[in-house]
Simulated assay, not measured.
Amino acid sequence: MNKLFFTVAFVSLLALSIGTIHAQSEQQIRSDLQKKLGSNAKIKSVSPSPIAGVYEVLVGNEVFYTDTNSKYLIQGDIIEIATGKNLTEQKQADLNRIKWSELNPANALKAVRGNGSRQLAVFSDPNCGYCKRLDKSLQQLDNVTIYTYLIPILSPDSAQKSKQIWCSADPQKTYIDWMINGIAPSGKSDCTTPLDKNMAFAKTYGITGTPTIFFTDGSRFPGAAQITDIEKKLSSLKQ
């Protein structure tokens, strides 16, 4: 019994020691890499990758890899051959995910078609050509609620148009009239708007381009995604 107890205790101590060594190693890699990359690169974490001797490095919301000596910074995908899974892509998707509950519908334009059961959110700039293309495509969706968050990031005129859209008598109609029909917004632009809140949200979650789409599971589609891909994603979610 004493021998068994000693063996179990030794194995437990060994496992704890190995874990401590790994933690120290990861911390050292992070420290060394941070010095080499400079203060502009904000390293969030360093952790073992599925490949022995290779570590996953999170810089902001980007995934990189490095060796145990921090000599190389590797940019690329790790694909598990047995399953065909792109592990880097999965990690990147998780990093870009948000909590749907953190979106405030009061700060968005709202369009409801059909029963409105399926939901998505779009961050849009009124001077964004790809946003206009996306808005035209979204007209094909039924039984959907679309929340549009205006973030004027392209030009000073984007801010002016966003304010005019939000301050109009029917902001959603004014938005669609401009984005799809080319009818420029006019009228006052001095009402209280949520634009600053939307910009702050975009900055917090790394939304640097428009359009950016979010779904109720928190996943995002950057750019003017194909309507078939959007429909497929919506169909996969339990609304």
Rank of each mutant, 00 (worst) to 15 (best):
M1S: 12
I207S: 09
A41R: 04
Y65E: 08
N40F: 09
K99H: 13
S168K: 04
L234I: 07
C191S: 09
S168Q: 07
K238V: 09
S168T: 03
S39K: 12
P222T: 11
A200G: 02
E102A: 12
F215W: 09
E80I: 00
K132E: 10
P211S: 08
K3G: 01
S189L: 04
A41Q: 10
P211N: 12
A82D: 14
S186L: 01
S189T: 03
T66E: 09
T210E: 13
L103N: 10
L73W: 08
F221D: 06
S117M: 05
T192P: 02
P50V: 06
K197N: 14
L4P: 00
K85E: 15
F214E: 02
V144T: 12
N198V: 03
A106K: 15
H22S: 11
L120D: 06
S70D: 01
L234T: 07
A184G: 01
I51K: 05
S189H: 10
V54Y: 13
T208V: 10
F5H: 03
Y205P: 02
L14I: 13
L58A: 07
G209Y: 07
A169K: 13
N69I: 02
S70F: 03
A106N: 14
G209H: 04
V63Q: 11
K99W: 02
S45P: 00
I213E: 07
N40C: 00
I98G: 08
Y55K: 11
D170G: 00
G114Y: 11
Y130K: 00
P185H: 10
M179V: 02
I227V: 14
D177L: 01
P105A: 07
N181K: 14
P126Q: 10
P156G: 09
G19V: 02
G129I: 00
L33C: 06
T193G: 12
C167Q: 06
D190W: 08
L234G: 06
K232M: 10
V112Y: 06
P105T: 10
I43C: 04
E26R: 06
F6K: 12
A202D: 08
